[in-house]
């Protein structure tokens, strides 16, 4: 790890000011991606701005027809939240599938969303549930927020403060995970709200999380796993690596989508 200066602001406003002042500064949330990256010297921020001391970034609340989760809320807290379990059980189940219990005690939803790792779980939930990312400057719809491999709509000095999830009638996540890393080889989140159906896929595409529109159309006709029988996205543009080639990943997306619909319709 290269040397850095450490700052622990007590408000988002203060954090934004520090971010503006320190070129090459990075925000530190749970640190479970950033610190390993720094240990490998793949990242060398001049300063770390720790978001861990701000109550305004924590907590989960039901606000009308949405569940609003603070950016520094840990995966374990989402997994165990009675509010999330009641309103969007599929979201709590997704959080419970991230990493392992110790990782879930540290990793945060804001960190996961801002990093936009192509194999992370949360981006699929945001995209399928049509969530809104709330920052210190504005509100960004999930469709606009995720822009490809590790790329988001976040601008310089912008800090994710909350994520707002509209409650869906039916929603579930199915994930085929790499047994060593626990990252998704293919993860599919399906959500039905009114006549709208959204299917978001993570772990599979070289461009990061995406909506599988063909599956959405099929499910709009009838929301049942049978509607997706034999369907899989094209292997073109799917990740191929030592864990799974692109054809296998495309196949897994079809299987995971059917399992997610099955789970969503059977509760």
């Amino acid at each position: 790890m290269y040397a850095f200066t450490y700052h622990k602001p007590s408000s988002v406003r203060q954090a934004a000011a520090m971010l503006a002042k320190n070129e090459d500064a990075k925000l530190l949330a749970g640190g479970h991606t950033l610190l390993p990256t720094m240990k490998q010297r793949l990242a060398s921020p001049s300063a770390l701005i720790d978001l861990g001391a701000m109550p305004e970034l924590k907590g989960i609340e039901r606000k009308g027809r949405s569940v609003v989760i603070g950016a520094m809320t840990r995966h374990g807290e989402v997994a165990e939240s009675a509010v999330v379990r009641e309103a969007i059980p599929g979201l709590a189940e997704l959080a419970e599938l991230i990493g392992d219990p110790h990782v879930r005690h540290r990793g945060t939803i804001g960190g996961s969303v801002a990093n936009n790792d192509p194999s992370a779980d949360y981006p699929a939930a945001l995209l399928a549930l049509d969530a809104t990312v709330i920052t210190n400057k504005r509100k960004i719809a999930a469709d606009e927020f995720f822009q490809g491999l590790f790329v988001t709509a976040l601008e310089e000095g912008e800090i994710v403060t909350k994520v707002s999830f509209p409650v869906a009638q039916k929603a579930a996540y199915a994930k085929f995970r790499n047994p060593a890393s626990r990252y998704a080889l293919a993860g599919v989140f399906v959500a039905k709200r009114g006549s709208d159906v959204r299917v978001a896929v993570t772990g599979a595409s070289e461009n990061g999380v995406f909506r599988w529109t063909a599956a959405e159309e099929a499910l709009k006709a009838r929301f049942t796993a049978k509607s997706l029988e034999g369907m899989a996205p094209s292997p073109d543009g799917m990740i191929g690596d030592i864990h799974a080639d692109s054809a296998y990943r495309a196949h897994l997306v079809g299987v995971m989508a059917r399992r997610a619909v099955q789970a969503a319709t059977s509760r």
Binding site: Y6, G31, H32, L35, P36, K39, L48, G76, D100, P101, H102, V103, H105, R106, A180, S181
Partner: peptide
Amino acid sequence: TSQCGSCVLHVDGQAVKACTVL
């Protein structure tokens, strides 16, 4: 690399991987 768990200790009563916490 926060995988094996041999560094697990408790911070404020919760198990964490101490190789991935400053």
